[in-house]
């Protein structure tokens, strides 16, 4: 079991390392980079939705907080990009804490409401605070991230950076889920009363995981800002928050690998559907509906179930037909 899991992670890292060798097309690499950034966002949201049983409808805002903090501090004030990244993390965590304390005191989906409002406010701030954010036309001139003697300014170099971060975040999240804390999270998702009767501080734990997922979003935002070298409010609107929730559900709730798949599919799909021009949105919606009807537990779990079912049929000689 442990060996199989290590092999899975090793294989995944190997594929990531080899992918750009055969595929040195800047468009494809950029697409992979966006999948990586989205994966970081979706894993964080999945920890919150799939494990803590809470929904955030404002994750695009935390993403934006990271992106704009990095952008403004580096482009306008010339702060070191790594320092700016840390500042973004601190700001996102602080904001998540402020929203989470009152919203998570109550049982139920109050966090969804609170984050929905937060998302709208942050979006309006990005548009209106022109002096800092550049307003609707955005903020440009964000420098690339760099290490001494090495700048991450080409898609290939960014690929290395982003996917190292993504792999690290995936591993960290898988470790968290397997830990004592992860067990407590799954318990409180199932029954808060029973979890409390075991001495689990459900409120504190939900707050912790909410702040945790905001940190992921902010990290993704900083990476995004330094990848595009440009940020505009439209990338952080409420629709993007909803798209993130969709990625979690399509990939599979409470599944680390599902987050990767959900982010991958929903990032690539619109690109593939571009050829259908005006029907793009319609097809996008239709595909989502089909996935949810036939694979309600998400792609990863659904495909595994299908495989097990066929496997079982073959072994029993198809008698059950």
């Amino acid at each position: 079991m442990r060996g199989a899991r290590l092999a899975l992670w090793g294989g995944f890292a190997l594929v990531l390392a080899l992918l750009p060798l055969g595929w040195r097309n800047d468009y494809y690499l950029s697409l992979l980079n966006f999948i990586g950034i989205h994966t970081i966002l979706v894993v964080g949201l999945n920890l919150l939705m799939g494990y803590a049983g809470q929904i955030s409808l404002g994750h695009a805002a935390f993403f934006g907080v990271g992106a704009y903090t990095s952008g403004i501090l580096t482009a306008t004030y010339g702060v070191n990009p790594w320092l700016a990244l840390v500042a973004g993390l601190a700001l996102a965590a602080g904001l998540a804490f402020l929203i989470g304390v009152p919203a998570l005191k109550l049982r139920g989906y109050y966090l969804a409401m609170a984050t929905l409002g937060f998302g709208v406010i942050v979006y309006i701030f990005f548009v209106q605070a022109q002096r800092f954010t550049g307003g609707p036309s955005g903020l440009s001139g964000i420098p690339a991230l760099s290490l001494p003697g090495f700048t991450f300014h080409t898609p290939l170099r960014l690929y290395g950076l982003i996917w190292t971060a993504t792999l690290g975040i995936l591993a960290l999240s898988a470790g968290l889920v397997d830990s004592r804390l992860g067990r407590a999270l799954r318990a409180l998702h199932d029954s808060e009363v029973a979890a409390e009767s075991l001495g689990i501080h459900t409120q504190r734990l939900k707050l912790l995981i909410f702040v945790w997922s905001a940190l992921y979003a902010s990290l993704a935002g900083s990476l995004y800002a330094h990848t595009l070298n440009f940020v505009a409010p439209s990338s952080f609107d409420i629709m993007f928050s909803i798209k993130l929730v969709t990625m979690v559900v399509v990939g599979g709730m409470a599944s680390i690998w599902g987050s990767l798949l959900g982010a991958g599919v929903l990032t690539v799909l619109p690109e593939l559907l571009v050829v259908f021009h005006d029907f793009e949105v319609v097809l996008f919606g239709a595909i989502l509906m089909v996935v949810m009807i036939f694979l309600p537990r998400g792609l990863v779990r659904g495909l595994l179930d299908l495989w097990e079912y066929r496997h079982f049929r073959r072994e029993s000689g198809g008698v059950s037909g």
């Binding site: 004592r180 009363v193 009767s197 075991l198």
Partner: peptide, 24 residues
């Protein structure tokens, strides 16, 4: 407290339940 209707965590394993029991 052993609550009414057991209140187990359906998807979690027996081993997980025992570890959660010792959570505190």
């Amino acid at each position: 407290l052993v609550p009414e209707g057991r209140q187990l965590f359906a998807p979690l394993s027996v081993a997980d339940h025992l570890l959660l029991g010792a959570y505190c």
